[in-house]
Structure formats: C-alpha cells, structure tokens
Design a protein around this nucleic acid. Sequence first.
DNA 1: CCTACTTCTATTTTT
DNA 2: TAGAAGTAGG
Length: 751
Amino acid sequence: MSANSDLTVPQREAIELIDGPLLVIAGPGSGKTRVITRRIAHMIESGIPAREILAITFTNKAAKEMATRVNDLVPNRFVWISTFHSFCARILRDRAEVVGLQSNYTIFDTTDQKQVIRTVMSEMDLDTVHFPPGKISARISQAKNDLISAERFQEMHNESVGHHLQAIVARVYPAYQKALLNANAVDFDDLLLHVVNLLTENPEIREQLDYRFRYVLVDEYQDTNSAQYKIVSALSQMNRNLCVTGDPDQSIYGWRGARIENIMRFEQEFPETSVVRLEQNFRSTKRILQASDELISNNIQRKHKKLFTENPEGDHVQLLHFFDEKQEADGIAEKILKIKSEEGYKWSDFAITYRVNALSRPLEFALMRNKIPYQVTAGVAFYDRAEVKDMLAYLRVIYNPKDIVAFHRIVNTPKRGIGKVSARKLIAWANRYNLDPLDAALRADEITTLSKRPKILLQSFARMMQEFSLTDAGSIESLLRMIIHRTGYTLGMNHSQSEQDIQRLANVEELLTAAKQFDRASEDDITLEGFLETTALASETDKIDDSAGTVTLLTLHASKGLEFPAFFIVGVEQNLLPHERSLAERDPKELEEERRLLFVGMTRAKEKLFLTETVQREFRGRPLHTITSTFLSEIEIEFKDLTQEEFHLPEPILKKKSKNKDAQKEKLSFLPDTHRLTTGADLLSGRKTSVDIPMGFQRGMLVRHPKYGRGTVVDVGGYSKHRTVTVDFEVNDRSETFIASKSHLQPIGRG
DNA sequence: CCTACTTCTATTTTT
DNA sequence: TAGAAGTAGG
C-alpha cells in the first residue's frame, strides 16, 4: 500500500507506532476514526495476525462503523471489534462457571433489575415507597462501577444502621447479587465486573487472554470506568501494546462512573508510552473552533491541547436572545427555513440540541407548524416496550429456565388465571426443593398449598412451555410465531379498534421482522443466545439516522461523535447549562463536566453555530426568570437580540383556546409530509435505510386501502411514529384505525 | 383484575 | 405541567 501521504504527521505517527503503549489525544474533528481504522489496517499489513487484535468501543454504532471501515481497507480478516459489554459477554460465556454462573445466563436490563430489587426488598420487608427500587439500583450500579463488591459495601456502611438510604442499600445489594446468581443472570455492570474478577482472581486465565490479544485498542478512553480500566490493563501486562484514543475534554459521562483520571494518568501507568496529539481540526470553521477553545480553556482538569484548523474563518458564532421558549422555537424554525432557502442547506444539515429532553417539546411543535421534517431521539426504547419484553421473556425462559424475572412476566401473560398468589406459592416451593420454576410447575400437584385449579393451570402452562424449542421451530421467527399462536398472545388485539392495541400489535410485528432479519443474518447458526444477547445489548441511540433527510433533535450527550453543518444549542442558561444539579453540588469538577458538555456540543458544528437563551422559560409549569449562563461570559460571541421579533406562523392554527382534545389533535396534524422512521428491525440489523411513512393525513382526506377500498379520514391521533389514522370506508360502513406507518393507506385526494 | 384517583417528583443514559 | 407509581374501590 502506498505511503500515508494524505495524512498529517501526527496522524501518521498514530498509525505507524504499533508496538508499545500509545496514547492518542484526539481533539474534536481530528479524524480519529480514520486514524484508528487505518492503524488496524496497517497492523494487519505489517503481518500481525488479525485475530491477535482487539478493538473496543462504547457503542454498537461505533463498533459497526469501525468494522465496516476496516473491512473496506483490508477485506475478510477477522479483527475482534466490539463494545466493552459484548466483549465481556462473550468472554463470560466460555468461563461462566468460574464466577458461579452457567453459560446460558441471561442479561437483565434496568427494568429487570428494578424488578429483582423490588422482590428482594419485599422479601426483606423493606419499604419500597420511601426507598424506590430505581434509586437503590442506581446506588448499586454506582458501587459496581467503582468496583465495590456487596461485601465491601456492607463493611463500608456497617455503622450507618437505621434507615438511611446507604444502610438499606448495604442490605439489599448482597441479596440482589444472590438473586441474580440464583436466576443465572447478570446486569450490565456485572458483565464487566465478573470479567474483572475472572481476570484478577485467575492468573492463568488472565495470561491466556493477555497472550491471545496481543494488540488492544480502546476508543473513547476518557469514558472508561474503573471496571473497564481494570479489564484493559489486565489484558496489557505481558503484551503492552495498548493503544488508547480519546479526549479528556470530551469526558461527559462522569455521572455514570466514567473516570477521566484513567486517561489523565495513562502516562504514569505506562511510563514507556508514546503520546500523539491530533490537534488539527478538519471539521469546523476557525471561529467555531476558537470559541470552543476559549470555553474549554477555563477548565483546570485537562491536558493541554492547542486546537487549530486550516478551514475558513466562517460566520460569527451567534447568541440568539429570545423572550421565551415559544419565541425561541419559532425563531429557530424560521432560521432553518431561511438558511435552507438562501444557502442551499438540506434538512439533514441541521441539528438542534439541548441539555434536557424536556426542552424538545416547543421545538417539535414549531417544526411541525413550519412543516419541517425532523427526527427526535427519545421515547421508549424498542426493546423496552411491553409486548416486545413479553415475547422476549418467553425466549428467555426457554433459554435459561432459571430466569425468574422472565418467568414472572409470562406465567400469567396473556391472562391464564394464574394469579400472583399462586405464582408466589409455586416459587416458594421451587426454592425449597431447589427446582427451576417450570419443573416445579410440572409437579404442581405435589404443592400442598395450592388448590386444585391453580395446580391444573400451572401444569398445563409448563407442558405448553415444553413444546417450544428452537430446534423444532427451525428459526427464531417461527419459534416466536409458534409462541404467539399457542399462547393466543395477540388474540385480544387482532380486531380491536383502540389505538393502543393497534400499536401493541405493530410492536409484535416489528419484533417478528427483527427476528426474521436475525435469522437471515445468522444463516445456519441461529441461536437463542445470539438473539437474546443482541436484543439485550441493542440501544436506541444506534438509530440516529443521518440518511433520513430530516432535521435532528437530540440531547447534547447524544450529539457526541456526530457533526452537522448547522448546529443549534438551545437554552444556554444558568441552571440548565450548567445544570442546577452541578451547581448545587458545589463541586468544581461537576461544573467542569458541564463545560465539557457545551464544548462537545459546540465542536459538532461545521459551519454555523447558534446558542440560544431566553428572558423567561416555562419550567415545571411556571414561567421562570432566566439567569445568564456563566459559560457565555467565557467566549466571544455575537449577540442578537430577537426579543422584539415577531415570527410569523404559517397558519393560525391555535386560534381557539385548546383545552379540548379536538383542538389538540388539530395541532398535531401539522406534520411534515413524510417522516422517516427507524424500526426495531433496523436497529437490530444496523441497517441505515429507513422506511418512508406517509404522514400527511388530515381529516376529510380521501384514501384508498388495498383491502377495504375507498374511505374518508375521520380522525388522526398521536404523532411521529405513533400516529394513527381512523378511516370510514365506503363499503358496509366499516371504520378502522391504522398506524400511519404500518397501513397501506394511499391518499387519493381531498374530501 | 381493571380503573380512576392521588401523590410525588422532576439531568444526562454509550450497555 | 406531566408522567409515573401507588392505592382504593368496584
């Protein structure tokens, strides 16, 4: 391959220094991903066997992108590129017994976790009202991130008796761990923690893996927590070919246990390390970069870095000053329209970001009113939706019969007359004789505490479950279909008119599609393990779709790693950015993280960057007077007072005061003509294309349905992907409600 | 078992 | 304000 002549000197260094530890401090927009992928390619070309290389990222998206790009450079070599969590999941499968698990363990998500904690707490007679399971599980997770075991935690808090939160946590934590082990399950944190224990307590295993992965790369190293640090370091003892890339100035997950010190201390941990700084920015204009640099210079805890760019000067960074959030939203919408028409920008060139999700609402309404297509990254994650979780719970029980959370979920879903009391009696009995729930259910007639009817019901449930097997079904999809059919799961929903049921049915459909795609992708190696692992570790942020042709709305956190030609940061105000919680803590470190968050945001912008603030903003229902953000005094920014500006709304939609539902719905019908949506199936397959959904339905519109023929739209409800359309058909006065995105309705004119 | 009412709380969320 | 989660009552 030709020399890396298209690269800068430091970039070349970062690619070519393969042996020994290497720290790459990569500023925003410095071509980091490019460097990492080229580096891997270069390693392979220099004769390093691909299987000795391990590359770790934080998100599925990043892993997938890296894998694709490496494959483009050096096709068909197997380099292990994955997230921390799926790497650990894999390692753990092979050595589960070492930590007391079986290899068919299941991964509990946060909902499952809370469920376990709730049960554990009620067994211990602890008050779940005053001590919400969510809070407890957050504390436990925090402890785990810091490598504090249940026993350690107990020792640390054995003085704080009584009913302090810590004392409660100290009691719940060990019981929770025991329950997990009992269910042959792990939570997200355990995935890492078990591997840490595996490596620190078993020198031979550590050596074996250290030897196997002679070259280790870790991306976004500033976001590693203590557990991840331990894992990485354990794999780099004998073979100290560890390359970490990251930027301390972009560490914004401290609240989740990320330890910025990991990257700050890297040079001390590996004294022989080389350090490369990628300081040239290829993304932003000079003015954007300069303002960002000014801001971040106010942080004390950081590694010095001199950002520069050869890009043009560009426009001034602007601070748009509005009266309130409503005017702000309209002003932004108008700005987008103006830039688009005057300077030829595309919808997808724009992003609007904010500190908290709650700020997205007025923005969404303004975009709707102005018929600007947009995508928002919020809402219930696909794999969190009840129907999807139900279906997956069946698979989980089949795969791991000890999965008690999944068992509880399905034992009476759909309703089959097995109430809470019967289930609890069953589990108590099963525990006494050390049986799996289903085996116990099979022998229900031996359970003396149960009366006749529950005995029969439990037995027939257990027998039904025995019928389900992947081998017989042949594929995940047909196994799921079998379950749906045999349990009658969708019976109630099939002919229902209610929006909710239609949505639920659509969710089931979507899961089937996801399963089908998994089956296809796995060819002859379809396993429940694979499917369950993918679904457990899939995340909703993977779905940000840059090819959607829409404006993107997202939190500042979610914007990390992305870039947009025109970028808005909304609500740069004291108590919002910096967030009030960071100020209340009085910890300068917290403030610095907020500053880094703004820095991350600002450096997403390629050409145009706008920050906004208001005079007053509605907060929890009350309009609140705004205070200028301390960060604004730290940067040079052009101030635009728009408080007197009137933004003409395209249509006077809300003339009548809208307390009634109809008016609300009317408001929602001003949606972009088409809206693109990423489905659960896309999410799973990592497919980038998304489905085109006709969204422009309005009351009175004439439509055609392939099955029911011509009809008139009589109602529309919901919005975005939940949008529904009710149609009165001409034949036999039939009326049906559809999910806009799922229906095959075609507009054929105005009524 | 479902629903309607009350009460409480309120970031960010790579997995 | 709005959403969740818990409680009472049918």
